[in-house]
Design a protein around this nucleic acid. Structure first.
Lengths: 202, 202
DNA sequence: CTATAAAGTGAGTAATCACTCACTTACTTC
DNA sequence: GAAGTAAGTGAGTGATTACTCACTTTATAG
């Protein structure tokens, strides 16, 4: 991969643009990333970007596609290797946090895109991603109930909200402290507490 | 209060500006709110705003002060009336959600400000708010342990993160659906699950 | 080696934004 | 009711931004 050379083929240039935007989002507010800053980081003229994307919104859409594809693949793979529904949830949780720790700009992008006023393609993509994520959570939680691992009185919808909230809360902590360490350090304890609420009292 | 009349005294005009910004934040991405839009909503010329605030950042700082003051007062009042630490947490939780349901732009503002690149006064104010909030949570959780209401093996720091995450998760749901109803509907179930994880198994 | 197409350049443009200022209007006080 | 002051107006300004385009450079196929 000679991604730094000039005159890349179009598909490689598009991929490099997406990766650059994700890298920049780790350093600054995603909504403040300019096409000029993207081009500068790529050692490219600003105008060249628009040979590969019709608008900036299309660039963001490509970024969100990249994220949705990678994140869902990561959590699916993590869930498959586990022995029980609760273990799958924990593996998904850890894989998700590992993913955002490696790409700290991504949760910022998702949240920022969600609260855009306009209904952009990128925003719809985020909604789809989160909906698909929630479906996987519901399935696993129901399986946990069926197998008696999760208490029957647990509200599955509430549990899915709490799961998403766990991740969001940890991200919030990292935004306050300015680095990613609290995520890795606090994650296990938070999940233990979450699982305590779910588990059937034997 | 004749807040719509022309030629308001300076302090009332500043207060009206803050309230207008909070109202606008409920409708659109806070970072996309322009001074022109604020002025238009107030039936005021854009230039007039800068007679009362030296910069736009100062406007945001005033907004954050408004939020910090009101939110902390609300949750403190709610916590006082409750019979036990866990009941206080629940009352705080509900008061907080009631607050954000009435001012849907506020969580957006806080999160958006947190991820700004520059270290603005508003950002420092958000950090302070969240730190003070976390202190209250730690105190209550420790009291719960001392009284035997909360299991001794519970990680207090994790519980505080989970509490913040609960709120953040519910806000996320409302951003996806586009309205505030899921917050009010799902909140009790989510808290029950949270409390299940904390409570001492008798 | 040459022709052709793909990719990149850099100097534009129009729109938008926060912020300024000379001037006008409205309140207050004696 | 005149004088003084506080508040508002509206037409600026310069900086920034997404996007365009005529032209140049590079890669590649015959």
């Amino acid at each position: 991969m000679k991604l730094d050379s000039k005159h890349l083929p179009a598909d490689q240039r598009r991929a490099a643009t997406v990766e650059t935007m994700i890298a920049l989002a780790a350093e600054q507010n995603p909504s403040e990333i300019t096409t000029g800053a993207i081009a500068e980081r790529m050692n490219l003229s600003q105008g060249a970007l628009f040979r590969h994307f019709p608008t900036k919104d299309d660039m963001w859409q490509s970024v969100m596609e990249w994220v949705a594809q990678r994140l869902l693949a990561r959590i699916d793979k993590a869930a498959q290797g586990a022995a029980s529904p609760l273990a799958s949830l924990e593996a998904m949780f850890m894989a998700h946090l590992d993913f955002v720790a490696k790409h700290p700009g991504i949760p910022r992008m998702l949240f920022g895109e969600l609260q855009r006023a306009k209904d952009t393609a990128a925003k719809r993509m985020v909604r789809t991603l989160l909906t698909q994520y929630a479906e996987r959570l519901h399935t696993l939680l129901q399986q946990g109930k069926d197998r008696g691992e999760i208490a029957s009185e647990v509200d599955i919808h509430a549990a899915a909200t709490l799961y998403i909230g766990m991740i969001q809360g940890l991200i919030m902590q990292s935004l306050i402290s300015g680095n990613m360490t609290p995520i890795r350090d606090s994650a296990p304890g938070v999940f233990i507490l979450f699982a305590r609420g779910l588990r059937r009292v034997s």
